[in-house]
């Protein structure tokens, strides 16, 4: 293990654009998710069978969670937040596969996701409340708090990214160190623990995203 775990390895360039391992892994996961979804949903029937029931349960479960948090119809938020949860789950857990480094273990991926969540908060806030009423929300409870509100928006997105990055990266780093020091079987409990951490972090990231968006649209108090 010669490369830094904090640095994304560049595998190749497309023109002047460097393509890192993180991006390639993400493409692979995207391809696998898309193919799996296509295979799972192409033969959907009204009376659900085995895999269909699982897929429907996952999707409806995510939708119900969003609805219970926002207390309103989750349909406008399902594509973004559902994709976020599914991608994070798969990306976090993908690190246990031999030779695969979880995309979320690279700071760029959590940062990109946190940025998208940050922008989505404003998008949905303006969409559901209107531009001026949404901006007025930053003056509450007192206009004096406007700088703190703006700072809060930035820092919570930063902490969102750093929390995910720190957990996943540290778990992979621990497993890598143990693998280098103790051999093949010792890291297995840590890898299982890593799966749990990955699932929990995906859930936390998504729930926080829902809470932030809910605050943006006025469904949840900021």
């Amino acid at each position: 293990m010669n490369e830094s775990p904090l640095q994304a390895a560049i595998l190749f360039h497309v023109g002047f654009v460097p393509i890192s391992r993180t991006v390639v892994t993400t493409w692979g996961l995207m391809a696998a998710l898309t193919a799996g979804c296509w295979l799972a949903t192409r033969a959907f029937e009204v009376v659900a069978g085995g895999w269909q029931a699982v897929v429907e349960t996952v999707v409806i479960g995510i939708e119900d969670q969003i609805e219970s948090l926002l207390d309103r119809d989750a349909a406008p938020f399902l594509p973004l937040l559902g994709t976020l949860y599914i991608f994070l789950t798969v990306a976090n857990v993908s690190g246990i596969a031999p030779g695969v480094r979880a995309p979320t273990a690279s700071i760029e991926t959590p940062a990109a996701l946190a940025t998208i969540v940050f922008l989505s908060v404003h998008y949905y806030g303006v969409r559901f409340q209107g531009f001026i009423p949404y901006l007025k929300g930053y003056l509450k409870p007192n206009p004096i708090l406007l700088p703190l509100n703006i700072l809060s928006e930035l820092t919570r997105s930063f902490s969102l990214a750093m929390r995910l990055f720190g957990n996943i990266m540290s778990e992979e780093l621990v497993v890598a160190i143990l693998l280098a020091l103790a051999g093949l079987l010792v890291p297995i409990p840590f890898m299982a623990f890593g799966i749990l951490v990955g699932l929990v972090q995906a859930y936390i990231f998504t729930v926080l995203a829902v809470v932030y968006i809910g605050g943006g649209i006025g469904a949840i108090a900021k």
């Binding site: 993180t22 999707v59 994709t83 599914i86 940062a111 996701l113």
Partner: peptide, 24 residues
């Protein structure tokens, strides 16, 4: 990488909307 990951995620949003959420 940051930009590509953001784009990748948005593309994945569209793909899952097309192949998962809509069918379900």
């Amino acid at each position: 990488t940051f930009g590509l990951q953001a784009i990748n995620f948005l593309i994945l949003v569209w793909l899952l909307q097309r192949f998962l959420f809509k069918p379900v």
